[in-house]
Design a protein around this nucleic acid. Structure first.
Lengths: 195, 195
DNA sequence: ACAACGGGGAAGACCGGTCTGTCTTCCCTT
DNA sequence: AAGGGAAGACAGACCGGTCTTCCCCGTTGT
């Protein structure tokens, strides 16, 4: 049975947009391997031929999803929010873990898609490689904040900081709701040692 | 079941042992979703009926693998080795990241199966739950070492420590070979703050 | 103005392959 | 004679991907 009849106006709007919306929802919540093309097209009310006209393969849709995730989650949801919450570069760095703390509490917390895809596909797979690239972008943002804060050896700083981010995400997936606070405490020490 | 028949336990035990050996190899390297029953039985030279006589389902084999992984990797390869390398409880804690450093350099580095399965299956799936349990066991070992070292709030300590362990593993999967050193530095600060 | 045309999308059959799991057949050993 | 194991066919479901069919709608030619 069809979930819901696609409204005419949404049908008029781009099929690509609907596919991307559904893909973002399903991929971020359940991973990319667990979601098949048939489910994607059914839930976005699109014909299979239409899907394959816009995306040459499922993997290319996953690539588009990862890029969307970078914009929508990494940049808009996490980094912009952290920049908004802090007044100084140091505060903004630490605010990342405040945002994480709120994020971990969400009912529909879905972990980090880049880590998920990297571990699902392996670092050798093109999608794993793409995930590694996007994770490097995150590290780049942290490094930029470190440079704004005038910290020493910003590359090393960002790599250590990223360990705390990723470790806390895994701990939150296990159910530790205080993971962000713990990571933030260690993050504070890390800042001290890079001043 | 039959209790009297002496049974060719060499054959039966041989089959189970061969299946477990192959499963450990393939599951730890490629994850559990990527390895099918057909490949498992082919590479262990066992009939399908034999496989399903000893394991009621693939998932039960995965559970057995996770238990084996806990014994063979967590306890024997990591924790015992760390205990061997350090002379004091504190040294032994820090030595975990020395062992990690060596492990990250291995050509066939395969990340942490518990994290892999947790993210592959999700925290709600029985196999994800089992992975969470085994990760908690790891934290228990760390907590025991913390208590031996007389550190304060050993539970909190172990949870923070575990963040460093998991984060460094993900970073190593991305290709950062120095991840263990970075985590070890932060781990040192963590010890200082729990004295 | 109206009919013919044509393109895009929806629906879904279809293909070859995979998956887990069952069941049959035959052989080998005891 | 009997039972376990190897081999593998088989079932039923799913996978990604191709292709056909039909329909709706806008354009165009007359």
């Amino acid at each position: 049975m069809v979930a819901e009849a696609p409204a005419p106006e949404t049908a008029a709007a781009g099929s690509v947009a609907r596919i991307m919306t559904v893909a973002y929802e399903l991929f971020s919540r359940r991973g990319v391997r667990d979601v098949g093309v048939n489910e994607l097209i059914e839930r976005s009310g699109v014909a299979k031929a239409t899907f394959y006209r816009h995306f040459p393969s499922k993997d290319s849709l996953v690539l588009a999803f990862l890029e969307q995730r970078d914009k929508q989650w990494t940049v808009d949801a996490i980094l912009s929010e952290a920049r908004r919450r802090g007044n100084t570069p140091t505060e903004r760095l630490l605010a990342i873990f405040d945002v994480f703390g709120d994020w971990f509490l969400r009912e529909d917390f879905e972990a980090c898609s880049f880590i998920n895809v990297l571990l699902e596909m392996g670092p050798a797979h093109p999608l794993g490689q793409a995930s590694i690239d996007y994770l490097a972008r995150i590290r780049g943002h942290v490094q930029a904040l470190a440079e704004e804060a005038g910290l020493q050896r910003p590359d090393e700083f960002a790599r250590s900081w990223h360990i705390l981010m990723k470790g806390s995400i895994i701990s939150a997936t296990e159910g530790d709701m205080q993971a962000a606070k713990r990571a933030q405490k260690m993050a504070g020490w890390l800042i001290e040692h890079h001043r």
